[in-house]
Design a protein around this nucleic acid. Sequence first.
DNA 1: GCGGCCATCCAAACCGCTTTGGATTTCGCT
DNA 2: AGCGAAATCCAAAGCGGTTTGGATGGCCGC
Lengths: 352, 352
Amino acid sequence: MSKGVNLKELSQRLNLSQTTVSRALNGYPEVSAETRRRVAEMADRLGYAPNSQARRLATGRSMAIGHVIPRSIHEMMNPIFLEFIAGAGETYSRHGYDMTLTVVDDTHEEDAYRQIASRKKADGVIIHSPANEERRHLLLRELNLPFVVHGRIPGAEAETTWVDMKNRRAFERATNLLLDLGHTRIALLNGLEHMDFAHRRRRGFEDALAARGLAPDPALMRRADMTEPYGCENAMAMLGSDNPPTAFLVSSMISAIGVARAVGQCGLKVGKDVSIITHDDALSFLPNCGEVPIFTCTRSSVRYAGEKAAELLLAMIADPTAKPSSLHMDAELIIGQSTGPAPSPGPGKAAS
Amino acid sequence: MSKGVNLKELSQRLNLSQTTVSRALNGYPEVSAETRRRVAEMADRLGYAPNSQARRLATGRSMAIGHVIPRSIHEMMNPIFLEFIAGAGETYSRHGYDMTLTVVDDTHEEDAYRQIASRKKADGVIIHSPANEERRHLLLRELNLPFVVHGRIPGAEAETTWVDMKNRRAFERATNLLLDLGHTRIALLNGLEHMDFAHRRRRGFEDALAARGLAPDPALMRRADMTEPYGCENAMAMLGSDNPPTAFLVSSMISAIGVARAVGQCGLKVGKDVSIITHDDALSFLPNCGEVPIFTCTRSSVRYAGEKAAELLLAMIADPTAKPSSLHMDAELIIGQSTGPAPSPGPGKAAS
DNA sequence: GCGGCCATCCAAACCGCTTTGGATTTCGCT
DNA sequence: AGCGAAATCCAAAGCGGTTTGGATGGCCGC
């Protein structure tokens, strides 16, 4: 635990060559057990730790994974992004990799990737929240930089490695649940639909309606950044209209909380007068659990997705020739307190 | 924009030495204008970019700032942390620094710092959310690793560089506002008080009460992770008690939303029957603005704090001999829709 | 005409590690 | 004994930059 010796000093103290010491520490076989022991002991007596820059230079691997976040992402995806990062970070550190974040404004995103590639700042990157017409994967391919996608790139599913949940399926099931409860006027508060995930969710919603011969009502569909006020304002407007929805399908817990606030402000009860189903990314600061969760939801842990995406990326780096393999996760459909049978339509309904 | 040449190849193509090329590119004076031009031109024709590992090794500076997040932090501070990071990240990239995150479980936090120091992974670090009895700064001092604190370390204010808001003052003012509105039963939903910021906030609350000769009621004080359910459940319990509060002072928007939900569920109106003041970290996904913000709040941008903390750290690295200099920011007190005069006490009050 | 001073440029050392290509010793086996 | 294989270990060559300590040549002043 002293100041910090380097390999040279360490090897001198041991009367061994740098080669042998290096090999002993890195677990190569051509060194005797006894020597290895001596080396290990001296190494930690002197508090030796290899300089990572030197090691990286020598091995040609930067032992880091890059995440570039354009401002547009982190404006809205904030909490989800961090949760993903937290999951990925664990995997990285377990494998001795570092994680570097680059915050850039949207116009410099491409530059950021080029820099990572040309200056060898990372061995691979993660693509976050792919859009409908995505181009980053083409650039990365050209730069020869391994990557995995959190989400899917439409049209490139087969040739890329990705981790995603079944967005369409989840919202289809959620919609069916509402339909089964008798709701027919269902509002959709979606995320920005130029993002792939939101696009798929809408399809799930529409498919479920169509399967029962219902057409979606454009007046009940919104798309935007998934903030709390977004949920509240739109729900308020819809509930105030003359043909209000009896149920909401919401793309994020945060907006769902806003919807719940609106419902309360209208003097209605969530789960009784108005049903809400939300997607739940299992964010740690927005727990939706307990005996009966507050919100009925489709749940899929973003954190877990981060862990898995990281594993796939590291595997890809370790063996660049391997075929792309992806992870397609089902969301859980969890019944909470926010759903109930559709209220009977007739006005002036009697009690009980 | 070709594959990627290195300095050697570049210098050969130019019939110059590596020395000269390196100097030309790094802006040293001992190279003629003409040569510099030629070098620059060829460099970008061949798409030359210096290998960062090599440069780091040669210069001995890692050009990176480390952030280590123990699991305990990111469980609860999630969104705030990311917002800070986003601010800091901008500063870093503007100065050519990288940002590396290390996610560790609490027991390995110290190891993480030791590794950063001994393997030279970063030139400095940021200490996040200091506790009441904090020890990280001692370790970092011992490791000789420059750092700045986001928040303050009690007892070490003078000898460390930090960026913090005036927590005590903010909550004192907020409490005074409520008192001025006639509220006397004010509940405090605080963050975990083993953290310095929460501790200060409570003092602000208590000081304001004391100044008017009021004693805080322990039944109206809570401390915990600032989740949404935390706000809701506790507000619910307090509002259901036989001597309920008429106002809430909350440490985080997220919990405040929970409080608002509870108020609604009790059939009461926020800003009329019950007042709420929250601290607002100006998180981008929880906007609390508009003509009249939803919540009356004390606001201080965490993002800005991140930018500033990063600047201080980089300055400190550039000149290690400089005296510690800190940034102590005032929070804005912003009147929103969630506060109003205390309702008249008498039960069975007549209308209007 | 000559020493001195800039202005330019370069060869080589160095940063701290990994890895190649032997050298040396030991040992089993015929 | 003799020999090849196996076990250990090492000197030195990278990795791709930066930086030190000169070289070289032109120009000025005396």
